[in-house]
Amino acid sequence: MEEKLVIIFFWLALMAYASAFIFYVYLFIQKRQLTSYLATGLVLLGFAFHTASFVAGWRSVGHIPVEGAFETYFMIAWSMALIYISLEWLTGLKVIGAWVLPFIITLMGISWFRYESAERLSPVVQNSWVIMHVSVIFLSYAGFTMAAATSVLYLIQQRQLKQRRVTLFFRRLPSLEVLDNLSSTAVSLSLPFMTMVIVTGILRSLKQFPAWYLDPIVISTTLTWIVYSVYLALRYLGSWQGRRVAYVALVGFASLFAVEVMRSFTFFHRFG
């Protein structure tokens, strides 16, 4: 029963997010009060269903369901929705919705293709270290994705201003300073989580996998960690502002992708 609920709520959430996305796009094109309410209402509804699906999953396996591929992408999407909703609440910025929801919807789509029942997971990964390890992954991935989205917006707005063109993007997007602050805050908050990902991962594997440092995922994750550390150093210690650090944030995001590609070559980082 609970497993069916997971799926039903999953699809309801996905549908709410997709319709919210349509309203956010419409709102981006034309500022209208009704559209604005509908967009926010739908994204909140989607998040409620998303959470309901998560709770149903929890009840069906009896512990936090965070261990399979489905749950992983599902939870990254959930964390992003949570971050986005708090951001909209705090800043009142609604224009970013049209740019963040595609990420959430894509992640949910990926998770659906990797769906499998939680019971079928191997006992190896049903371990509290793993749960901690994976939980911080969600938060860091969600934060870095947010940083990438706002960095892209920064680059777009920066280009408009340099080329002195008054377009829709120029009107709707917030100022360079706001976008720059959003992405650097996202990176600053996510890097500690990524550090915890690496530390918990190492602690967990010391005994079981002595050659953990040879794992492609470990190597690529460490590289990603370095890229984001460089980002913060350049942003706060050096005099790199705006456009250049935005590119660094995108390089970091690309290396996150590389980590996911490495998953097919890893010898112990497989789901389930």
Partner: peptide, 22 residues
């Protein structure tokens, strides 16, 4: 947005400044 955007040169400068600085 009828009254949103600047329609004089001096206000356009302010509007642009606000797109650079928050």
């Amino acid at each position: 947005d009828i009254g949103e955007n600047a329609v004089s040169i001096s206000y356009a400068a302010v509007q642009l400044a606000k797109k650079v600085f928050s």
